[in-house]
Amino acid sequence: MKMRNDCLPCIARGSLDAARLATEDEDLQRKVVKQVLKELITFDLNSPPPLMALVIARAVKEMTGVDDPYSRIKKKYNDFALELFPLLEKKAMDASFDTALRLCIAGNIIDFGTHARVGRQKVLDTIDEALVMEINGEGEAFEKACDNADNILWIADNAGEIVFDRLLLQKLDCRKITYVVRGGPAQNDATLEDAEYAGLTGMVKVIDTGAAIPGVILEYCSERFRKAYEKADMIIAKGQGNFETLDSLDSRIFFLFKAKCQVVADHAGCRLDDMVIKNSHQGFAGRKFGSCG
């Protein structure tokens, strides 16, 4: 997905959010934002928006010396999700695949790339809504693809959210799944450290992309990841960043996300706040998939 004009103020805001997490010094915060805006002037607007996260991270490190301004937020929401997990697991354990899928997508609300503040109550409300609202997409087709695939590559998104992923992983054969996190700090996206902390490494093979980008841009990724990507016969891509960066015409990919940005919603052919399952076989106007009753 190419950059849109509406992405520009979002990038400026995102640079300020990251700067504020890194330092309370307002002069340094302004320097970060000004450096990002300076680089944005010459940035290739045909590139996907998540690539600008590299620019923001570099500016924050140069101005403040902080490598991972989102580290405390990631820890906070990993802990919150782990606190919720026993209750969520109880909801999903004896329920249908559909319930686990809904809760998995609901976890994508934990996104500080699109929301400066999410909050515990917003997460709880999203969980309740997820169990009754329609899904924009083909839940049955996704489940069938999971059953038929021999080699699934699951590309994760945010810290905290990855705990919700465990609910759906419990419904699948984890022996045929490779779970992928980011190759370094990238907003509040999950890394290997988060995956281990959240209990993923004990249930599924985990690798990283080799790139500190909140999405997947193959030329930036490691050879190990690219080989796993090519080998997979099904790819599960969680979150907006993966949707923005991966080829939506690749029929192996199922995108699972909450539409939290109007630009992404327009590109996906859905409404803001929709729970989305997208695959190229559906096109970008997938039919509604009803509540779990």
Rank of each mutant, 00 (worst) to 15 (best):
A237M: 09
G14M: 03
T126A: 14
E219P: 07
A95K: 04
A149E: 01
P9Y: 04
M1V: 14
A211M: 02
D67E: 14
F284I: 13
G215M: 04
V180A: 15
M133N: 14
I277P: 11
R175N: 15
L88H: 08
L37V: 03
F43D: 01
L87I: 12
L28K: 13
I236N: 12
S96Q: 03
R166D: 13
I277C: 08
Y197R: 12
I56W: 03
T209Y: 05
A116F: 13
P49L: 01
F289N: 15
H281D: 15
V123R: 11
I162Q: 02
D79N: 11
T23S: 08
C174S: 14
K2C: 02
D274T: 10
I236C: 12
D147G: 13
K2D: 07
G293C: 13
S96K: 08
V132F: 13
A19E: 11
F243K: 05
T114P: 07
I135G: 06
E138K: 12
V132S: 14
V204D: 03
Q35I: 11
R224P: 15
N158W: 02
A198T: 03
A18D: 02
I217N: 13
I177K: 00
D68F: 02
L37T: 07
R4G: 08
L167Q: 01
E223L: 13
S291A: 15
W154I: 04
P86L: 05
D165V: 01
V264Q: 09
Q262K: 10
K144N: 06
M63G: 00
D274S: 14
W154M: 09
K61N: 13
D111T: 00
L88P: 10
F284C: 14
G215E: 08
G137L: 06
K260V: 06
K171R: 04
Y229M: 12
P185V: 04
D194A: 02
N188P: 00
D165P: 07
M63E: 15
A195N: 10
C174K: 06
N136I: 00
P48I: 01
P49W: 01
Q282K: 15
R72D: 03
D128M: 08
S222V: 06
G65P: 04
R13T: 00
R252M: 01
L101M: 12
D173L: 01
G269Q: 07
E24W: 01
S71G: 09
N108M: 08
Q35M: 15
I11K: 10
L200E: 03
T201M: 15
A12W: 02
I253W: 09
R117C: 09
C7L: 07
Y197V: 08
I277N: 10
R182E: 11
G183K: 02
I277V: 10
K2V: 11
I235E: 01
G14I: 00
A237N: 10
P214V: 01
P214G: 01
L51V: 04
G113S: 12
K122T: 12
L168D: 04
G183V: 05
F243Q: 07
D208Y: 00
S280F: 03
D173W: 04
N279D: 09
F289P: 15
V32L: 13
M234D: 00
Y179G: 05
K76V: 00
R117N: 15
H267R: 14
P48K: 01
A190W: 05
L101R: 03
D125N: 13
A81R: 02
L88Y: 11
I41Y: 10
K90A: 10
A265W: 10
V276D: 05
A145E: 03
K231W: 06
P86S: 00
E223H: 09
G139F: 06
L172G: 08
V118Q: 04
V276G: 09
